[in-house]
């Protein structure tokens, strides 16, 4: 598990006649580099270090809005923890781009050890970020921390903290399920139609079997087993092809040029449409189609068993 404290405040950053409201984060550079992608997002200059004093690490769009470059000075004005005015001059040490438009256009970072002096936040943090090697461990830790922490603090998992994002994912899934249910519905009917015509094409054969002593239950088992074999082979084949296609697109995602630029407000950071090769999803869909296959034969079996032996044998 990795962890790091962060001190977060909102300030005005100014250069000459340009002033922009910004989120200024105090971070421990060495810890942050193993915890987040901030260091790797560097596009110009250098990342922060533990002994930096008046150095600031700016988001690319924020730097553009302020019209500053690496090595230039900007003024910061905000309010410190004791509600007094906090002001200082910073030199731009590095510029980063995460691809998250909102973040890149409003965020700046400084060495926490130095920022604590200005903001009167020594030995204080807005929050701690914890990263786990095993995601499952997070939930356990949240519960454990809840018991240990004082009442003024709270422990939140990413699902709780980003509940809106989690709901957005649920909404996305919901509409995906609605769309796919229509596909499944039409697939169900098609299989049922094919089952129906293929069973009815053998009505006389079934009548003969009944005359030879097969009971309706035997017929049901016979036809069900036939469908079981067909469903097994078709679902296995479909599953393998589907999985192969999904795997291919996971490695070589579709790229829609301009996608990230258009949807930057929604946090889309890449032109690539990622595909996830998830065995659970593939198995779940395969199982759904398998069950659809089996249920689609129920009505045709019912219909054929409604015919008497003579009706079935005389069927044209």
């Amino acid at each position: 598990m990795e962890f790091s404290p962060r001190f977060e405040t909102y300030v005005l950053l100014s250069k000459k006649d340009k002033t922009v409201g910004s989120m200024l984060g105090g971070i421990i550079p060495s810890k942050e580099s193993s915890l987040s992608h901030l260091k790797h997002a560097l596009i110009k200059g250098a990342y922060l270090e533990g002994n930096d004093t008046r150095a600031i690490y700016l988001g690319s769009d924020l730097a553009k809005r302020l019209d500053v470059d690496v090595g230039e000075e900007i003024a910061m004005i905000g309010s410190s923890l004791d509600y007094s005015t906090a002001a200082d001059l910073f030199t731009v040490k590095g510029i980063f781009r995460t691809g998250l438009f909102e973040f890149d256009s409003t965020s700046a970072f400084a060495n926490k050890a130095y920022l604590d002096n200005i903001m009167m936040s020594k030995n204080k943090a807005s929050y701690f970020t914890l990263s786990f090697l095993d995601n499952q461990a997070a939930a356990k830790y949240v519960n454990a921390l809840k018991d240990k922490l004082p009442r003024t603090c709270e422990a939140l998992s990413w699902q709780m903290l980003l509940s809106t994002l989690v709901q957005a994912m649920q909404v996305d899934s919901l509409f995906g399920y609605i769309s796919i249910s229509i596909f499944f519905l039409v697939i169900f009917f098609v299989i049922m139609i094919f089952s129906y015509v293929s069973i009815y094409a053998r009505t006389r054969q079934i009548g003969l079997l009944r005359a030879l002593g097969f009971t309706p239950k035997d017929i049901r088992i016979l036809l069900f087993n036939e469908m079981l074999i067909i469903a097994f082979f078709s679902v296995t084949l479909g599953g393998i092809i589907g999985a192969a296609v999904t795997y291919y697109f996971e490695i070589h995602p579709l790229v829609v040029s301009g996608l990230a630029e258009t949807y930057k407000d929604y946090g889309i950071i890449s032109d690539a449409l990622p595909t996830r090769f998830d065995l659970f999803t593939i198995s779940w869909n395969a199982l759904s189609i398998f069950i659809l296959n089996l249920t689609s034969i129920l009505y045709p079996i019912y219909k054929i068993n409604q015919l008497s032996v003579t009706e079935a044998m005389r069927h044209v």
Partner: peptide, 21 residues
């Protein structure tokens, strides 16, 4: 009749679902 109604129902249900969506 059954076969015919199956096709009609299939078209009708998928169409109404698609229109709603």
């Amino acid at each position: 009749k059954t076969r015919t109604w199956m096709v009609i129902t299939m078209i009708a249900m998928s169409l109404s679902g698609l229109l709603l969506l």
